[in-house]
Design a protein around this nucleic acid. Structure first.
Lengths: 340, 340
DNA sequence: CTGAAAGCGCTTACAG
DNA sequence: CTGAAAGCGCTTACAG
């Protein structure tokens, strides 16, 4: 019913092998034959069937994309964008992306992604934090693997990470440059390495400009990094008078929580306190005032991970490394202008 | 290298055919043999290889999911959730979902999704509006097709749609029940059938409660349905004094725009005007006051579409129909309590 | 430079 | 109730 390599061969007056050779760009085919075959292919509108090809090459041209249940189920826009970036890049290389989610706890009996059970992917990308046991399981299976935005404490993995240090450093430097001397830091738990790195970036900027760090200005909520945690942290900051003139919040959701608290307390942003967040989430500009934030190139993260993965698939001995994805400060209203 | 059906056959002491028969639950296999084979399968941890199976059955067990470029690139959470719902359901039926986007304008030379070119899907889901030419192209190819949240004016298609009429009707009825008599309607262009249906629902509710419709309360922005359009429409509403005591906004993004305008104009919500939106987008609760809205079960839409599609794949003569997905009013702050 | 042949791992008539 | 055989549509040594 659909066109096969034999039809093309017949039409071009060559053998199926030859057709295969030209499709796979094997060397040593005469120009004339290539022309003939290509003509036949395009005239018949032929496209090789994946399953047949996969069967013999034992390559699937599929990439598995695993997202933690948590981010999957809420359709976290952060990871969604990474996924879309990955899909876009994969397409260029003629790969398909197979998406799946995974349970919090990895169970070797139940929660192995089906594309690994079915041997249906050439490589895997895991985005966000998942059970390290899953990561190790896949790694030890020898399936090419790239991690995005999460790295277990143990082990060596290919990864694509946000340039947290640089982002935080740049954000805080900006605050310093526009005249701030007392700059606070608000974040969720340092257990999250992203947060920790952002803290280090903050620290570095202060040091470089010879500003002292005031512990009263460092407020974290040990739980998480949601709006609620921003509210908690901002409350702490207010209690620890005096207030800094600016605050770097390590995550936009928290920054929005802070904005809410400041509004309630009639603390004006940016006049009384300048605020810069991190992540540049979509709804940041819905806040009042509009949140200045460190933009993360989420699509790029997905695309880079795919490039990296394909490279590993093709050259399995590629040595493990970590790619940092750039960030860019987006200035809106919440960080104000130069101070005097 | 990996385990094949032959290994299982050998281990179970039967022929490969028999193994295949038990896997495919063919009738007339003795209980004893079934037991033996199943034991061998689980001991060897055998899983049939998709490509081999696909090659002979000419089924891929893949479902193509097409999203308009517009929604794809911004990772529109609405459609992302539909996608995730689809993926979740597909998994249950042992299908994979292959995602792709499509250009605004369908070009038969360039923009055919590659999974249709490569014959790599058993059926296709198209979510959101795309070029009708694409829909027709796929339809006429005879590939099982289910549309989500968009229906061309011409032609008969399987579809999963929001129950817009019901949702609007319920929202407006609620406003009426808590005492409102003058209820406005704000929306984007009626070209969008979702919007039009919501308008009809609004109309129906007023009629049923014998309330008259005041044209001054009907404000649409002919463009689109974003925040900006909400701002425009709300401005019109304010100009057309008198103001209604409540307004049903056919879409949350617009509703948020309205809220902004009302705040600027010192019109209190819900005291001066009650507001109910539609869609229940994630960041609705970030607004002030928190937006009441008609929740759409987005994940269900994806899941239903997959069920429908699989049904069509299995029984190609299934007659065309439209499935409406339920909605549910979520009451937060913006619509107020009973009036007096 | 090109073709004939074997084989990838399944499924499915067809025998028995 | 079960097995031997053919075949799905490709690729890839191996000849020539």
């Amino acid at each position: 019913m659909s066109i096969t390599i034999k039809d093309v061969a017949k039409k071009a007056g060559v053998s199926p092998s030859t057709v295969s050779f030209v499709m796979n760009k094997r060397e040593g085919i005469s120009k004339k034959v290539i022309k003939k075959v290509e003509k036949a292919i395009s005239e018949l509108n032929y496209y090789p069937q994946r399953s047949a090809r996969s069967l013999v090459t034992q390559k699937t041209s599929n990439i598995g994309f695993i997202l933690g249940e948590k981010h999957f189920s809420i359709a976290d826009p952060f990871y969604t964008k990474i996924l879309l970036g990955a899909e876009f890049e994969a397409r260029k290389h003629n790969y398909y992306v197979l998406l799946t989610s995974t349970d919090k706890k990895f169970d070797e009996k139940k929660s192995i992604p089906r594309f690994v059970i079915e041997n249906n992917v050439d490589g895997i990308i895991i985005a966000g934090s998942t059970d390290d046991a899953l990561i190790n399981y896949i790694h030890q299976l020898g399936i090419p693997l790239v991690l995005i935005d999460y790295l277990p404490r143990q082990g060596e993995f290919h990864a694509v990470m946000i340039d947290n240090f640089r982002g935080a450093y740049d954000a805080v430097s900006h605050l310093i440059k526009i005249g701030h001397k007392n700059i606070g830091f608000i974040s969720g738990s340092f257990d999250n390495s992203n947060i920790k790195e952002r803290y280090f970036g903050y620290q570095q900027a202060l040091e470089e400009y010879n500003l002292s760090m005031d512990q009263r200005f460092i407020c974290t909520d040990e739980e998480n990094s949601g709006i609620e945690n921003g509210i908690n942290a901002a409350r702490k900051l207010i209690q620890n008078m005096p207030m800094p003139s600016a605050v770097f919040v390590a995550n936009d959701a928290q920054a929005i929580g802070c904005l809410k608290v400041f509004k309630e307390e009639k603390i004006r942003v940016p006049e009384d306190i300048a605020v810069i967040g991190f992540d540049d989430i979509d709804f940041g500009w819905m806040s009042e005032p509009k949140l200045s934030s460190m933009h993360v190139f989420k699509e790029d993260m997905g695309a880079l991970a795919v490039k990296k993965l394909i490279n590993i698939i093709e050259k399995p001995d590629t040595k493990t490394d970590k790619t940092l994805v750039g960030v860019e400060l987006i200035i809106r209203e919440s960080c104000g202008e130069n101070k005097k």
